[in-house]
Simulated scan of single mutants.
Amino acid sequence: MAFLSLNYKSKTIGKDQTLSVILPEDDSYFDSKAQPKQLKSLMLLHGLSSDSTSYVRYTSIERYANEHQLAIIMPSADHSFYSNMKYGHSYYDYILEVYDYVHQVLPLSRERKDNFIAGHSMGGYGTMKYALTQGARFAKACSLSAVFKAETFMYINWPDFSPEAIAGTNKQTQGTDLDLYHLVDQAAESKMQLPELLIMCGRTDELFDENVRFIHYLDDKGIDYQFKDEPGNHDYAYWDHAIKQAIEWMVES
């Protein structure tokens, strides 16, 4: 098992960026005459208080990745909510750049069926945003304890977090690319190709009701999904348990 801390100069952000990669090993990587095995991969998005190292430090993600021969790509996106910020960096575009970059320089399969995306809280919001707009890239998407209503994070009280930097001074999100309900409407109307969706949330998570409202909206729009609610709070104890199940669901035939 290789663990990479990868630093490169991002053309999107305009400065050096660091991401973490878990890369399961294969015998073909030690044989210079062999064609390297192309791995399935998961783009894993962190939450508001986390970064590219958090899943490695707080969960057993490396063990799960090795068991299933799944590469894990973990970028950092600051407090951006994976948006092209009004006053800040274009983190929505940056995650797509990371996807393209790692598929160019690492032994990763480019086939849609072998590529997945997941994340928790802010990363769950980002996961659903990419699922609804970049379905041609990902076969499966799993949100854990996600924020689904943009107004929720417009009024979060968090150190050095600026919703105005994301949405502008008027904090307008309805009907914009920040509005997941709007993106659902667009996807349903255009019959866009979507990944298989798994939505997971602990029953004692403060965002549980928000998750339930969102899946009811998916029902109204005729969008398929699976919903899994179990005991759990908004913490890494639950996300460790949940990401293990998510990975098992992703790699199953």
Results as ranks from 00 to 15, higher is better:
F3G: 00
N7V: 13
K9V: 09
G14K: 04
K15T: 12
Q17G: 03
F30D: 10
F30Y: 15
Q35T: 14
P36F: 12
Q38T: 09
L48N: 04
S60V: 04
E62K: 10
N66I: 08
L70H: 08
A71R: 01
P75C: 09
H79E: 07
S83D: 01
N84W: 08
M85S: 06
K86H: 01
Y87R: 11
Y87K: 13
D93E: 10
I95A: 00
V98I: 11
Q104K: 13
S109N: 10
S109A: 14
R112V: 10
D114P: 06
D114G: 09
G124I: 06
T127W: 03
T127R: 00
A139M: 09
A146Y: 01
F148M: 14
F148A: 05
A150I: 01
M154L: 11
N157F: 06
W158H: 15
P163T: 07
I166H: 00
N170K: 11
N170M: 04
N170V: 00
T173Y: 08
G175P: 08
H182I: 04
D185F: 03
E189Y: 03
L194G: 02
L194S: 05
C201F: 02
G202I: 05
R203V: 12
D209I: 10
F214H: 04
Y225H: 05
Q226S: 11
K228H: 09
K228N: 09
N233K: 11
Y236R: 09
D240N: 15
D240I: 08
H241Y: 15
H241P: 03
A246F: 08
